[in-house]
């Protein structure tokens, strides 16, 4: 596939329409709209239960591609079945693409994901990570960052930090499955779609994790979806990198990260995070960034 150089190269054809019941300014919706530009109509999106499950609402769908919603914990295994079913029917050209949230990916569906990756199934797995169980109203998952408040990790007298667990390093985990693993951002669509394009060409499993800014859960003005997504990359909360054959490649390098404060201040979920919590979070970010810088261009997993 010809790599896109700028926004102007991105195809003007959409396989996604309006009319869904997702929130105004929904990051994950935008992610799927963009992805379908590269994937095209001969694609089956395998969805796990979550916000995106509400894209189609009988009898209407915004999708001009196919869609299977099975349950929450089984998108990867459903995709494996669809892939092999198509292959056995001689239909090798159809793309099989998972579009699953972080709860379905990091937590309840992890066994299914891990097996499909270990078996190197010819699937593209996109995790739209809104760092919570979003559709149920913003509860904690193992993708929720340290210091974020959620409905099940509220701040209180006993626990002013909110989320005290440090989120899983999912990319490293997936990289260790010897598959292609990459992060992506809505604010860098060229990077995202080029990664997707490369994944589409691959004869095996690809894992792309898209930070799915969530206006309702993160609690910000919907107009800021792209601004926040960009800031997440600039402050090192969401570095853009990829792991292939165990080698790390940092896609967006910065001589200096922006301090995390600006990112936190834009969102209600970090409101009232005590200074020592902010400090700890900044420490975690710095540590991860230093690790990425150290291993950039080298064997990482």
């Amino acid at each position: 596939m010809q790599e896109f150089k700028s926004l102007k190269d991105i195809p003007e054809q959409d396989y996604f329409t309006g009319g869904s019941s997702t929130c105004a300014g929904c990051g994950p919706s935008l992610g799927l709209k963009l992805a379908l530009k590269v994937l095209g109509p001969e694609t089956i999106i395998i969805n796990s239960a979550g916000c995106m499950t509400l894209l189609p609402l009988y009898p209407n769908t915004p999708l001009k591609a196919s869609w299977i919603h099975n349950a929450i914990e089984n998108a990867a295994s459903t995709a494996a079945g669809a892939r092999h079913g198509l292959d056995m029917l001689g239909d090798k050209d159809m793309n099989v693409v998972v579009y699953a949230g972080d709860g379905a990916t990091y937590d309840i569906g992890f066994a299914s994901l891990s097996a499909a990756a270990a078996k190197n199934e010819r699937i593209i797995y996109i995790c739209y990570n809104n760092q919570s169980y979003g559709n149920t109203g913003f509860q904690w998952s193992t993708a929720t960052p340290y210091g974020s408040e959620t409905k099940t990790t509220p701040r209180g007298k006993e626990n002013p930090t909110g989320t005290t667990v440090v989120n899983k390093d999912m990319l490293k985990i997936m990289g260790a499955h010897r598959v292609y693993a990459a992060t992506a951002s809505l604010a860098y669509p060229v990077d995202f779609l080029n990664k997707l394009g490369r994944a589409k060409e691959r004869d095996g499993f690809s894992y792309i994790e898209l930070l799915g800014a969530c206006t309702a859960g993160w609690n910000y003005d919907p107009r800021l979806t792209i601004k926040i997504s960009k800031l997440a990359v600039r402050c090192g909360m969401w570095p853009l990198y990829e792991i292939e054959h165990g080698m790390l490649n940092l896609n967006k390098d910065f001589s200096e990260l922006k301090p995390v404060d600006e990112f936190l201040n834009m969102q209600g979920r970090y409101r009232a995070l005590p200074p020592n919590g902010v400090e700890r979070l900044q420490g975690l970010i710095n540590e991860h960034w230093a690790e990425l810088k150290e291993y950039n261009g080298q064997r990482y997993v």
């Binding site: 396989y15 329409t17 309006g18 105004a24 189609p56 009898p59 209407n60 915004p62």
Partner: peptide, 19 residues
């Protein structure tokens, strides 16, 4: 059978009232 066989038919759904 609960399947949708008209791709992209949500385009006609009015979400303008949300604005």
């Amino acid at each position: 059978i609960p399947i949708i066989r008209e791709p992209g038919n949500a385009a006609k759904v009015n979400r303008g009232s949300w604005r």
